[in-house]
Simulated scan of single mutants.
Amino acid sequence: MGVPKKRTSKMRRDRRRAANNNLRSAVQVIKCGKCSEPVLPHRACGACGYYKGRETIPAAQG
């Protein structure tokens, strides 16, 4: 079994781990089908409480 000949430094380790941060995409925001408010995907709308065309959270009394 292969064994590292020398210890990996903290800087080299952290640089390798940080390289994946640039590959992540930004969070997509969509519009609610009922009230057109911005909503995260696969989440109920905070303004109207609808998800996939039905009310899942009671609407806030405003």
Rank of each mutant, 00 (worst) to 15 (best):
M1I: 10
M1L: 11
G2H: 13
V3Y: 15
V3C: 12
V3N: 13
V3K: 15
P4M: 01
P4S: 07
P4D: 07
P4I: 01
K5V: 09
K5N: 08
K6L: 08
R7G: 09
R7H: 10
R7E: 15
T8V: 12
T8M: 15
T8S: 10
T8G: 06
S9L: 06
S9H: 14
K10V: 00
M11Y: 13
M11S: 06
M11P: 01
R12N: 08
R12I: 07
R13A: 01
D14H: 02
D14L: 15
R15W: 14
R16I: 08
R16S: 07
R16C: 05
R17W: 10
R17K: 15
R17A: 04
A18T: 12
A18P: 03
A18D: 05
A19K: 10
N20I: 15
N21H: 08
N21L: 14
N21C: 06
N21V: 13
N22G: 11
N22V: 05
L23H: 12
R24G: 07
R24Y: 09
S25F: 01
S25G: 10
A26Q: 06
A26H: 04
A26M: 10
A26S: 06
A26K: 04
V27K: 10
Q28P: 00
Q28H: 06
Q28A: 01
Q28S: 03
I30H: 12
I30L: 14
K31V: 02
C32L: 11
C32E: 13
C32D: 15
G33P: 03
K34V: 03
S36T: 11
S36M: 11
E37H: 08
P38T: 03
V39R: 01
L40G: 01
L40S: 07
L40I: 02
R43L: 03
G46I: 00
G46D: 03
G46L: 00
A47P: 00
A47Q: 12
C48E: 09
G49H: 04
G49N: 03
Y50V: 12
K52M: 06
G53E: 03
G53I: 00
G53N: 07
R54Y: 09
E55L: 07
E55H: 08
E55W: 02
T56I: 07
T56A: 02
P58V: 11
P58Y: 04
A59W: 02
A60M: 13
A60W: 15
Q61K: 11
Q61I: 09
G62D: 15
G62Q: 14
